[in-house]
Design a protein around this nucleic acid. Sequence first.
DNA 1: CAGTACTGTGTATGGCATAAGCATTACCGT
DNA 2: ACGGTAATGCTTATGCCATACACAGTACTG
Lengths: 259, 259
Amino acid sequence: MPDGRGDGGTGLPPSLEVAWGLRERPAKGPRPGLSLGRIVAAAIGVAAAEGIGAVSMGRVAKELGVSTMSLYRYVSARDELYVLMEDSAFGPPPPTPDDVTGWRARLEWWARAQRAVFHRNLWLLRIPISSPPASPHALQWMERGLAALNGTGLDDGRRISVIMLVGGYVRNEATLMADLTAAVTARGETPAEVMRRYERTVGALIGTDPAPGPDRYPALRRLLASGALGEPDDSPDAEFEFGLRCVLDGVEALLPRNG
Amino acid sequence: MPDGRGDGGTGLPPSLEVAWGLRERPAKGPRPGLSLGRIVAAAIGVAAAEGIGAVSMGRVAKELGVSTMSLYRYVSARDELYVLMEDSAFGPPPPTPDDVTGWRARLEWWARAQRAVFHRNLWLLRIPISSPPASPHALQWMERGLAALNGTGLDDGRRISVIMLVGGYVRNEATLMADLTAAVTARGETPAEVMRRYERTVGALIGTDPAPGPDRYPALRRLLASGALGEPDDSPDAEFEFGLRCVLDGVEALLPRNG
DNA sequence: CAGTACTGTGTATGGCATAAGCATTACCGT
DNA sequence: ACGGTAATGCTTATGCCATACACAGTACTG
């Protein structure tokens, strides 16, 4: 391995090996005044307050009272910092209560816990996924998801597919919610107002009146007329649970025998 | 409305109203040498060749042989250009063949068509979703998705939920694939090699040997031992169809009566 | 033919990631 | 005790980027 000449032969960037607890502090130079932990915490503070877009190397450095370039002693690129922020924000998966038994309840618990993390850290959803999970907490979450499927007759290949399916659903739903709240905070409106404005926009675009020729948007027009866009009758949580139930029903249909 | 004083009272940015065919060419100034269409086409060309990261205002302008700032006569911000690129790349949904009948077949067709678009334009997946769909083709796709659910007893609220669920699944799966192919082209490896390298990394991180204390990663370890990560027995297409079947099974479980 | 609205453009500002080189520091082996 | 060495934090510089602003030319309206 000419490249990663550090401790672990993991092929990971040095900062991630530090996060994994591999790699000792080198015994030579001056004692570091900074630490990965402090940098990541500062970055998360900025992201939480002003969104991921405000997290620049310069900004984080200013927050810590150091120069921009000193951060590069700890992190070799901004994207690496993003990965560490992600790992830190997720933290370890919370312990599953004892009364949560059976694959379905366990997966639901897993999904809701993940959703809670996204809701607490909306900026997470703006970080593009760049590589398969290899940070400490990410693998712990993956472990938990896989373990939830114990007892189902699914083979290992299917298990990854299932947890990627469920995890993807959670992320997707959370992203839609985050987009809505972003629109809400951008202007000074309530979610209901945003949706009603969207409803009005679509109405103006496809024409609220049936139009002269053949109708190109019958289904959309009926949706608009129903008012389901502007006044959803479900709470966001209920919406999430609805989709989750769908997905898990689909998973259940896969199982060889019973539940 | 003090803001959007143009033709349509849509509340949309001017460029989008142009894309919708509202807004005449103003009869006053010099005839424009550029057009939204040419700009968007050039931008898509850059994105297709070098990824969305290469699509900067300066770069697109250079491609067209004009100055950077002239683009701002047609588009008020880069993100607006992104929306137009997205709309153009999607195009209208392809016509559904006559032998595709029933909600399930129609939704499958819709999902596969959408996936095909993503596969042809991987850069699409790197554009963050900023606002609810309001571009011409986006609404056509939405219309098609809603119409696919005709005949099911689902009410309109459920229908949006379902198409967002399916659409989200497609996008998610396509993104994972795009990430993989990005990793593939970044280094000079085959997909199988990338996955095997990942397998090795995870092995090095959690320790391939059972470790001394209690095992923190039993499920992951078993997954690794099974080789399911490194050598998935399904093709990417089969993987997609598997997830799609899951999701649609879940949808089917919602329906009031039969299929 | 003057007014006007629109065009493309040049210039300027302020931000960004990051490469390269420098002085300083603390440990290692002697 | 002390030179060698490797790591630290910093300054400076490069080359991107989005975009505000002001200007000169252009084609239509009255």
